[in-house]
């Protein structure tokens, strides 16, 4: 759409964020402790961690708003502050409420467009794209949080950037808004952009993120695909429901599985795939009503990972609010 993205025929070469060994302290508090990860094109990378883990600080360092004491952050291989028209390289939504209430949404987008040398026509395009419609002529101060998030998305997409970075975009959205935001994220990734989305609630990213960077206490705890993470957390456990639990346990142990009773007539079996379990039970005529692979939720996998990294002990991670 813009000249700058047209000349390399796509987003791929510039659609990256590289965060390399960032360190930063606020007073005696360590905010970033060797933060290192990369965001790749064509997928949604979830940036997850408890509050205070350093998500927002990392994003501010990427944008050149905060300075790191050590390390660097590169957008398409260049430090953000070296970009001449930065919104054409990275579109960010940090705080949807950070706008002057007396200005209309359209005029807010207009000054941003002017700052990048973009024509006013581009403002109308992103107004449509974000579904702001006639509300764009109203003062942004009267917007609901959902409308502000839409305005923030419009601003982030103004420069048609290969990289999009959103801080807690699901916060305060109603169910319709959440569905809409998920659609936006998926579309952006499908177009080949690199998308980084932070959240302190793993559940929000279930079905949205393809890749996860899980952080705690200013460093990366896990940098992994969502599918791998779920498989690891599920641990290959199979749930078996049977009225003959003693007999079933004996048969399966003989075949080398580890078996634990998880209820009056349910067993947890590890060490054998579900197909083999069914075959063994059928061979010995053991009755059973259900054999299913246990599937961990993203939330469970996340709790497992961050158990040691939660900043404020005694407070369940999900209940801590900003």
């Amino acid at each position: 759409m813009s000249e700058e993205s047209a000349d390399d025929g796509g987003y791929a070469t510039r659609a990256t964020i590289e965060v390399i060994g960032l360190r930063k302290r606020f007073g005696s508090q360590v905010a970033l402790d060797g933060m290192t990860f990369a965001v790749r094109p064509g997928r949604v990378t979830g940036f997850v961690g408890p509050n205070g883990a350093g998500k927002s600080t990392t994003m501010r360092v990427i944008l050149g708003l905060d300075a790191a004491e050590e390390g660097e952050a590169l957008v398409g291989g260049v430090p953000y502050r070296g970009l001449r028209r930065p919104l054409r390289h990275l579109g960010a939504l940090l705080d949807a409420s950070a706008l002057q209430p007396g200005r209309t949404a359209r005029n807010h987008l207009l000054w941003l467009a002017r700052s990048q040398g973009l024509p006013a026509g581009r403002v109308d395009e992103v107004v449509e794209l974000a579904g702001l419609g006639p509300a764009a002529r109203r003062k942004a101060g009267g917007f609901s949080l959902g409308m502000r998030q839409r305005l923030g998305i419009a601003a982030a997409l103004l420069g048609d950037p290969p990289v999009v970075m959103l801080d807690e975009p699901f916060n305060g959205l109603d169910p319709d808004g959440i569905v809409w935001m998920r659609g936006v994220l998926a579309t952006l990734a499908r177009q080949g952009r690199a998308v980084l989305v932070s959240s302190h609630l793993m559940g929000e990213l279930e079905g949205t993120a393809d890749h996860l960077v899980v952080i705690g206490r200013g460093r990366v705890v896990a940098d992994t695909g969502v599918a791998e993470l779920l498989a690891a957390a599920s641990g290959g456990r199979v749930v078996l429901r049977t009225s003959a639990s003693a007999q079933a346990a004996r048969v399966l142990r003989d075949a080398g599985a580890a078996v634990v009773a998880t209820g009056p007539d349910t067993l947890g079996v590890t060490g054998l795939p579900d197909e083999r379990i069914v075959a063994l039970l059928a061979r010995d005529g053991v009755p059973f009503s259900q054999v299913s692979a246990h599937r961990a939720t993203l939330e469970e996998a996340y709790m497992e990972l961050t158990r040691d990294a939660v900043e404020y002990r005694g407070v369940p991670a999900g209940e801590v609010t900003r």
């Binding site: 430090p79 001449r84 000054w111 040398g117």
Partner: peptide, 24 residues
């Protein structure tokens, strides 16, 4: 490494600030 954040950059900043002042 900058792609020339010189005078052109300042003109864009100027137009942005003027738009802000005009529309507030």
């Amino acid at each position: 490494r900058t792609d020339g954040a010189g005078r052109g950059g300042f003109v864009m900043a100027l137009r942005a600030e003027w738009t802000k002042l005009r529309t507030a």
